[in-house]
Amino acid sequence: MITLAVNGQTLSTELPPETPLLWVLRDGLGLTGTKYGCGVAACGACTVLVEGEAVRSCQLPVGEVNGAVTTIEGLAGAEGLHPLQKAWVAEQVAQCGYCQSGQIMQAAGLLMANPQPSDAEILEAMDGNLCRCGAYPRILAAIKAASAAMAG
């Protein structure tokens, strides 16, 4: 049995340690906000934070997770939605919405490391996250809005 810190809770799974974190979250723990898109780290739909860093959970065996995991379900804090989530709603970013958990978590990792990114830094950080609906312009706008809001 493997024990994990996920969204501030201690959870455990019977799934084998080589199972990627993505599938432990989705199939073992019922945290289905994190999505499967490609299984080869080419689309970013499975992005979560481990110790504040954005990682592709489809590539990370659960047995090798060292640190606290944050998924889209745990991004909101005691004071409500994360500024990125608020910006996502304000900018009306999502279309089909399937990639958006990964987009938001990737952006959350970016803003933790770099609270005031330039456009070029945002594009670079987000380039691994595919959106088939083509919501990119609004994703960019929302990240900039969230960054500005967090700077207060």
Binding site: R26, L31, T32, G33, T34, K35, Y36, T71, I72, E73, L75, A76, L81, Q85, W88, V89, Q92, V93, A94, G97, Y98, Q100, S101, I104
Partner: peptide, 18 residues
């Protein structure tokens, strides 16, 4: 405001795979 936007920003929107 789209009726599905909040759920698609907090991970709670349910797709068949969920």
């Amino acid at each position: 405001p789209r009726t599905d936007m909040a759920a698609k920003s907090d991970g709670s929107a349910r797709y068949a795979c969920d």
